[in-house]
Nucleic acid binder design. Structure first.
Lengths: 237, 237
DNA sequence: ATTACTAAAGGACGAGTAA
DNA sequence: TTTACTCGTCCTTTAGTAA
């Protein structure tokens, strides 16, 4: 959609930031060049090109020129900027996984049933998980890599605790949906302790995922983990 | 500050908008080329360059590649975008004028005293103007051009009215400051009727500008008109 | 079908310099 | 001092094509 050449962006932005949207401002091509990290000659060429394209107007003022950005030029920059912005903002903030359902609800069920976690699930996730995790064996190296790095993203963080006998590690929760929306309020767990392996994904939900979706052991399954991109990444611990 | 080459921006944005921030996505260089308005070969080169620079990573998937934007790449794009954004947003939204004060408060004073305007000034501008306008004769062609186009900008709009005998035209007001802040709450008027000429600026304020600032007839004066840039320009009538 | 090499064309840029 | 011309160099792109 935007017609403006990429190389001219810096020049236009520089002019606009100097107030050239509404006023004719005096800039020398040498200064301009310095500001955009190019030579005087390059800046001069930019202004000539932009003038030809109708994006700026210039008037002689003695030996120098005064420059103003035209409506057309402003529209062009704003629309370029708007389309970049919307492209960046519409970027899906989710990590996709695929794998097959395997049996092994035992251990998960035990942990979920512990009071020290249950309380936090209810408080931070909004529900008490069905007792038992759905285990998904990832099928592709790409998903295993993503699984390994999953814990780096901002999470719903459940503190570890001690019951007097032993201590239990923290749990990071990530909201997730299953099979393109067949179930929306699931969550994927990243545990401090149980370091299964990077090919395994543990999924919980308020109800039995198998019952609710009809998924059986051995079935292929897609899990989409939603990531919070609201800036300020990478947190402890 | 941003190190990334301008020509790579579109490619990076395209990848990000396809979700390559968190997932390895499959893109062919032919598709990518189409999306950024370049050839397949150019897209291929971009990916090679970006990979070398550490802005993306790729993994073979059969014959194709899957691509993901690295943290470094994302940081680069976000910071480029942020610096453009701040440059554009910090752009001063004001039109500067310079001229000399001339006598001629008569007519302005008469208009300002009319009840049909006084009411609207108080309501929309927040004060009742000192009775009398300060007239500024613009000295440079550049300012006269700007004066001619002033009415196109969003304004504080006073309706015209009739007192039974005759009708009075609309008035557009623009908040303005005088001599770099010597007076901040002045306003410049653009009248429907009184089509003086493009070299004249009429300025009002809650008090006598001459008394408050010590400006006398014949003095040079700067008037800075503030423009409302909050998008959605160009309105009636 | 897909990537990316090569060669050649096109464009952007900086140095030198005229006006 | 300023702008902008020419020209040589380097960078970017495309077409053709190999793998």
């Amino acid at each position: 959609m935007p017609e403006i050449k990429l190389q001219h962006i810096l020049t236009m932005v520089q002019l606009l930031s100097k107030g050239a949207r509404h006023n004719f401002i005096e800039v020398t091509t040498a200064d301009l060049g310095k500001n955009i990290g190019r030579s005087q000659q390059a800046a001069s060429k930019h202004l000539l090109d932009l003038e030809t394209a109708g994006y700026i107007e210039r008037v002689r003022r003695g030996q120098k020129f005064a420059v103003r950005v035209t409506d057309k030029g402003n529209t062009e920059i704003q629309s370029l900027f708007a389309s970049l912005k919307s492209a960046l903002e519409s970027a899906p903030a989710a990590i996709d996984f695929e794998g097959s359902v395997v049996s092994g609800m035992g251990e998960g069920a035990y942990y979920m049933s512990l009071e020290g976690y249950k309380k936090q699930f209810l408080e931070k996730l909004g529900y008490e998980p069905y007792p038992g995790t759905l285990n998904v064996r990832l099928t592709d190296q790409v998903y295993m890599n993503a699984r390994r790095e999953l814990g780096r993203h901002p999470s719903i963080f459940l503190e570890g605790f001690s019951d007097g006998t032993r201590t239990y590690g923290w749990v990071k929760c990530y909201r997730a949906s299953i099979n393109d929306g067949a179930m929306e309020n699931a969550a994927v767990l990243v545990l401090e302790r149980t370091h299964y392996d990077d090919s395994m994904l543990e999924v919980i939900a308020p109800v039995s995922i198998k019952d609710a979706t009809g998924i059986k052991n051995g079935d292929r399954i897609k899990v989409q983990v939603r990531i919070d991109n609201s800036h300020g990444h990478h947190q402890m611990p």
